[in-house]
Every structure is written in C-alpha cells, then in structure tokens.
Amino acid sequence: MTDFDHIEKVGVIGGGLMGSGITEVTARGGLSTIVVEVTEEAAQAARERVEGSLRKAEKRGKISAEDVDATLERIVFTTELERLADRDLVVEAASEREDVKLGLFERLGTILEQDDAVLTSNTSSIPIVKLGAVSGRADRVMGVHFFNPAPVMQLVELIPSLTTGEATKARMQHFVTEKLGKQPIEATDRAGFVVNSLLVPYLLSAIRMYEAGYASAEDIDKGMVLGCGHPMGPLALSDLIGLDTIRAIGVSMYDEFKEPLYSPPPLLDRMVDAGLLGKKSGHGFYAY
C-alpha cells in the first residue's frame, strides 16, 4: 500500500449538517468512519441525519438498499474524542468558533497515535496556520472545506498553511479525487478562501437590501433566480447555510481585511441573537 493510499480510517468531529454529510461521503467511499459528538443525544441525531440522507438517496435510485446497510456498518458514533487515536485522517467539522477549534486541535495533537496522520478542518474562515501551531504537528494540518450538502456538491477547497508539508498536500489531493470522487481547488490560507470570499459579500449585500426595505425576501430571491439564473436566492441560501455561520464568516473576514463589505449588518446580528438561524432552527428569512 502506497503512502497515498494509506487513508482507510477516518474520524469526523461534529455530526451537524456538514459533519453528517462528510461522514456519509467517507463511509460511501468505503472508509471506516468514527463520528464524535458532544452528547449522546447529539450523536443519535447525527446517526439519524446520516441514515435519513442515505434512505432518501435510496428512494431516488442513487444507491441500493444493500449499499445503505453496508455504509451504515462502516460508521461508529461516539462522544469520546480518544476513539480517534488510530485514525489516518481526522476532519474537524465542529461549530465555527475559533476557541472551540483551537481546543480540539490541541487535544488531537496528543491523541493521534500515527506520526503521519493528517488533521484537517472544515472551517470556512479560521486561519489554518493557528490550528496547526496548537496541534504540535503543523506539517500534517490543512483545511479541507466541503460544501453543503456534501454528498451532492462536487467541490472541495484544499487550504494548506505556511507550515503544511508537501506530502500532506499531495495526500489530500489524492484522497479527495481518488477516494471521494470530488473536485478540489487549492486556496491560500486567508479568511474566506475562494468561494466564501466571493459568496459572503453577496449574501450580506442581500441582507442589507432586505433590511433597508428595497424589496421582500421573496422578491429579492426571485430576482436572482429568474434574473440571473441562480438555482437559489441569496436569502434562502443564507437560511440553508445558517445565519450564525454567515455571521461568523463575515466577522472573521472583516477582522482580517477590514473591508466594510464583509461586516455583518445589524439585522443579521439581531436574528442570530434571537436564535433565528435559518433552516436548522426552523426560522430565518423564511419559516420551515
């Protein structure tokens, strides 16, 4: 087995929308996958989320019932971070908070048993170099940013930091293309990377437009869908991504670049403070 092929055991931290999607992708790729959540209830919710997605794919004829069962057998859900000790690769998909991610990477640096194990983050905006520094294995740390829904979206952003080793970059390029069947692009370790640097200012602009009373949420979205050929309007897309995530990315990008277009508008702050986070909370710019 070559060094490139030596990723068979994967760990995923976080079983939310992104974590469960990444779990489905790796398990469908034939890889043993351990998912770590903070509570038993969250772990059970992650299990139901993954199985529900697989059953939907089965109903659409994308996967057989036998493959669904085989995929689920490859996944273990747990609350114990130490269960990741033997993993070849860990993908962190916890909440978009720098303090949480730094704490996890510091712990994982001591937990992982294999010297060549790769530690990655699905962060949208937090500097990868910081995560590498606290892990004590900076040459084997990089960003691997999936897009929602991960089982469907083909793009993965690969983000090496200043300290990421060439071997780690090559392994992750091979892993994403050959093991997962995704299409990678490489971005520099700057807040927002490629996609969010373009997307988030657009979403924030739509929120400002709605806040200023230019048009209803429905008409803003209809304008971009029917007028520009977008598959989804910016406010509906914000709800899908999560308004807390949009705000966190905007804050991180504004902190780094000090560009006003990255600064979250007051309405977004108020909605997040009120728990109106979009689809995942049942209400955002639309009710679900």
Rank of each mutant, 00 (worst) to 15 (best):
T2M: 11
T2K: 12
F4T: 08
D5L: 15
D5G: 15
H6M: 12
E8H: 14
E8M: 08
V10C: 07
I13T: 01
L17G: 06
M18G: 05
E24Q: 15
V25Y: 07
V25N: 08
G30Y: 10
G30D: 12
T33P: 01
I34V: 15
V35M: 06
E37Y: 01
E41W: 00
E41Q: 10
A42S: 04
A43N: 00
A45T: 02
A45S: 05
A46V: 00
E48W: 00
G52D: 01
S53V: 04
L54H: 01
E58K: 12
I63D: 02
S64K: 02
A65Q: 08
E66N: 11
D67Y: 01
V68K: 00
T71F: 01
T71W: 02
L72M: 15
R74M: 03
D86F: 00
R87N: 02
R87H: 03
R87V: 06
E96N: 09
E96P: 09
E98Y: 04
E98N: 07
V100D: 00
L104H: 04
F105K: 09
R107K: 15
L108S: 08
G109N: 13
T110K: 15
I111S: 03
L112P: 11
E113L: 10
Q114V: 04
Q114T: 11
D115H: 05
D115N: 11
A117C: 08
T123C: 13
S124Y: 10
S125C: 14
I126V: 13
P127W: 11
I128H: 09
L131K: 10
G132K: 13
G132L: 11
S135K: 09
A138T: 12
V141P: 12
V144I: 14
H145N: 06
F146I: 06
F147E: 08
N148C: 07
P151E: 02
M153E: 04
Q154S: 09
V156E: 00
E157W: 08
L158R: 08
L158S: 04
P160D: 08
L162M: 14
T164N: 12
E166H: 07
E166G: 05
A167I: 10
A167D: 15
T168N: 13
K169D: 07
K169R: 14
K169M: 13
Q173A: 13
T177C: 02
T177Y: 01
L180C: 10
D189L: 12
A191N: 10
F193A: 03
F193C: 07
N196T: 10
S197Y: 14
P201N: 13
M209S: 15
G213W: 08
Y214K: 10
Y214A: 15
A215F: 06
A215E: 13
E218Q: 15
D219Q: 11
I220M: 03
I220K: 01
D221A: 10
K222Y: 04
G223N: 04
V225D: 01
G227L: 06
G227F: 04
P231M: 04
M232V: 14
M232Y: 08
G233Q: 06
A236K: 14
D239N: 05
I241Q: 08
G242C: 07
D244E: 03
I249P: 11
M253E: 09
D255E: 15
F257K: 14
F257P: 06
E259I: 05
L261T: 14
S263K: 14
P266M: 05
L267I: 11
L268W: 12
L268V: 05
D269H: 15
R270K: 15
A274V: 02
L277Y: 02
G278N: 03
G282K: 05
G284E: 05
